[in-house]
Nucleic acid binder design. Structure first.
Length: 551
RNA sequence: GCCCCUGUAGCUCAGUGGAUAGAGCAUCUGACUUCUAAUCAGAGGGCCACAGGUUCGAAUCCUGUCAGGGGUGCCA
């Protein structure tokens, strides 16, 4: 890649200056090389002169000039020049750019992928909603961020495992089961008491009705305990199936569905608690067991005075399992902002089980507020007032939905206006990108019909600005993947993909690809279009979007 | 009270120390006898919430203020 090449050239230059007596104790790396916003500033720019000139008691511009003087002619660099405060600007030779077209096509689907010898294992856990009801639109955000980030990390060379944590233990699920049972008794005309704060959504009744349909005989041999357990199991599976179905619709795949209950069955819970007990991280207070805070009295309950473990207790066992048992090098948990208060406890707990806290990344996304008929809708699963995931996907489609959630940074709060989303789904920017893809397919289809062989054309015929600019955009894909894998900000994909689509549409406007008059040029441009298809396909795949061949 | 996130064009949002702050939508002007006009070109539109500070250089980092959202120990 050009970046590495330029860094090498610059470091060689520094080495020469060092030999001449300059006291240089630094090297140039990625962070000192940037892409200028304006093309008049070249393809790459180095800022080292401005950052380090003062250490050598030189003016930035003089230091920059002395670096540039040492740079020799090169097969990739077209021009090097120094500008204003001390930027060192580089432009790439057209011949070098054009060569990239073949490389992209050779890599095909793997273009942009990195190979990491370290084989780091990353687990990414997202959504993980209580299986007590259908997913709503807010959950779609976490699903889209998580699944896309997983795709990018995989491309960046990590071994990635996508996981859904099923909270099938604890208070909420008990409450849900109680709600189910109360509804069952109600339907059967038996005496019942609906639990306080129970789940009143109509889907609860639907589940019970379906349970009754499939288990006609329960009425005859009514055995309280037995029926309660069977109904609970039925309810859980019912909800889980609907979650799985929703995820499939939104193109979200999981490798593992992990049950919270297993942590208690397989001994992880006891092991983790023992570990913390033994190293003095837990204290007894008021009959409960607490995770000790080191700085203040802000301790956190792990085991309630009635003996029940809290959700945090499960989280301790769960992360013990992730790091110690399953040996993930890094773990990314994607949480809604309503859980953000847990971060300090999680970080501190990770250290206590003997893991570097930087290996746990808690990615928080701000909550989605819903708007319908111009009014903010409060979403609550318990009261049943919700707009479901399913409803949303049926209305606007998975592509629009994914793109919408993906195009905002996770730390920005968003207002989801249902009416607006439905109305504007037709001129959603996602179609801009897909349309470019469809156009590419159209061109290649025509070339095939005409029987044109463009497998080995003269790429040096490519010389128009819109052609070369498109290549420049193509080769940024690996940089984009690397950047996102570092910043964990998958929203960047939408912007770079749009920018690339724009460069294609511009090219399309300016350059006729298939023309009877100039067959050689046609072949070169077809090859270019083929490379564009590879890049666009990669963007669409990473984002989990469809690749329509016609629109 | 304390902690976290946010405040950038009329609207929705990018821009995690670089050059004249960008995109989509909306508004206005121009381009279809075409490999798909779901496109392209151009115009207008900004005290980057406010006030200080850090440095060659700040929308970006630090401090304070204001505004919106979230959290705040036996819920998850």
């Amino acid at each position: 890649m050009f970046v590495e090449h330029i860094i090498k050239i610059l470091n060689n230059s520094l080495l020469d200056l060092k030999k001449e007596g300059l006291k240089i104790e630094f090297e140039i790396d990625n962070s000192l090389l940037e892409k200028p916003q304006k093309s008049i500033h070249g393809d790459y720019a180095c800022t080292i002169a401005m950052k380090f000139a003062h250490k050598l008691k030189l003016k930035p511009i003089d230091f920059a000039n002395s670096i540039v003087e040492k740079i020799k002619d090169d097969h990739i660099i077209d021009k090097v020049w120094v500008q204003k405060p001390g930027f060192i600007n580089f432009s790439i030779k057209n011949t070098a750019l054009v060569e990239q077209v073949n490389k992209i096509i050779e890599h095909d689907e793997s273009f942009g992928d990195f190979i990491r010898p370290s084989k780091e294992k990353i687990q990414i856990e997202f959504v993980s909603v209580n299986p007590t009801g259908p997913l709503h639109v807010g959950h779609a955000r976490g699903a889209v961020i998580g699944s896309t980030l997983a795709n990018v990390l995989e491309s960046a060379g990590y071994i990635v495992e996508r996981e859904y944590y099923i909270n099938d233990a604890g208070k909420q699920i008990k409450l849900f089961n109680d709600s189910l049972f109360a509804r069952l008794l109600e339907i059967l005309g038996k005496e019942n008491e609906f639990p306080e704060d129970g789940y009143v959504g109509s889907y609860v009744v639907d589940i019970v009705k379906e349970f009754l349909e499939k288990n006609n005989h329960v009425v005859e041999n009514f055995d309280h305990e037995n029926i309660y357990d069977r109904l609970s199991e039925f309810g859980m599976n019912y909800v889980l199936d609907s979650i799985k179905e929703d995820m499939k619709e939104l193109k979200v795949n999981y490798d593992v569905w992990f049950s919270e209950n297993d942590l208690y069955k397989n001994g992880d819970f006891n092991e983790a608690i023992d570990l913390l007990k033994n190293n003095g991280s837990l204290i007894d207070l008021d009959g409960a067991v607490w995770f000790k805070s080191e700085n203040d009295d802000n301790h956190k309950v792990v085991i309630r005075s009635n003996g029940d473990p809290t959700y945090f207790a499960s989280d301790i066992a769960y992360h013990y399992n992730k790091f110690i048992k399953r040996k993930f090098n890094k773990v990314i948990d994607i949480w809604g902002a309503d859980h953000q208060g847990q971060i300090p406890f999680m970080k501190s707990m990770i250290e206590k089980i003997g893991i570097d806290k930087d290996n746990l990344n808690l990615l928080i996304y701000q909550l989605v507020t819903l708007k319908r008929d111009g009014e903010i809708v409060r979403i609550s699963k318990r009261t049943g007032d919700l707009i479901t995931f399913k409803e949303l996907i049926e209305d606007v489609g998975s592509d629009v939905c994914r793109f919408f959630f993906l195009s905002r940074a996770s730390e920005s709060q968003m207002e989801f206006d249902i009416d607006l989303a439905k109305k504007e789904s037709e001129d959603n920017p996602v179609y801009y990108i897909q349309y470019a893809y469809a156009r590419i397919c159209g061109i290649l289809r025509l070339a095939d019909e005409k029987g044109i062989d463009y497998s080995n054309p003269d790429l040096n015929l490519i010389s128009e600005n819109s052609e070369l600019d498109m290549i420049r955009k193509m080769i940024t894909l690996p940089e984009v993947i690397l950047k996102i894998s570092e910043t964990l900000g998958p929203h960047q994909l939408t912007y770079f993909a749009t920018e690339f689509a724009n460069s294609f549409h511009l090219f399309y406007q300016n350059c006729r690809v298939i023309s009877e008059e100039d067959l050689e040029m046609s072949k070169s441009r077809l090859r270019l279009v083929q490379a564009a298809k590879v890049v666009l396909a990669k963007y669409l795949t990473l984002m989990g979007l469809n690749k329509p061949e016609r629109m």
